[in-house]
Amino acid sequence: MEKYIFYAFAAILLFSATMVITVRNPVRAALFLVLAFFTSAGIWLMLEAEFLAITLVLVYVGAVMVLFLFVVMMLNVNLTPVQEGFTRYLPLGILVAALITAEMIAVLGASHFGLDIVSAPIAHGANYSNTKELGRLLYTVYVYPFEIASVILTVAIVAAITLTLRRKTSKFQDPGKQVKVRREDRVRLVKMDAVKPKPPAVASEETAS
């Protein structure tokens, strides 16, 4: 039974992942990505990685993809045209992909990773806390990678701000200056005669120079 559920999830996952990169409408691509996340969360649940599965749904589907969809819809991105040379390189691409897939099947199949070679992990009882174990490992054995990951996230923020923030060109109000403004700064009264000014003496200037 479990086997068939796995195959069903895997098939949907592969299908939706392929659709993400082939569909031409970005909104549909984002929605297929959501589907891919859901099915991989399902596979993780079957692996007894409940915490990771829920995090994937909450963080990626709930937060990241919603923001993503927001941006895609706000930007009004149109259908992306088929890339030039796509059809030209398609046969070669398919050939390479097929070769790599065949190799992967040969190496990663049951002959090298079968249950008789790699024993199945022990199933844990109902009172086993996945989250607790994860937290324990993350803050003890893997504390150094964990800290580096946090630095990477900091750098990601710094990089994003550096590349998008343009303070020089943005317009903003300065209330202090607004309060300090005087009448003379805004309005200039000019006294002018009601008569027409004389036309400039063009001829005389020319002789002078």
């Binding site: 990678p145 580096i148 990089a159 590349l163």
Partner: peptide, 21 residues
Amino acid sequence: FLTLYLGLELLSLCLYAIVAM
């Protein structure tokens, strides 16, 4: 391997941003 990979990503991320500055 994990530390090595994370260090590499930290370095690469900074370099991408530096090139794009």
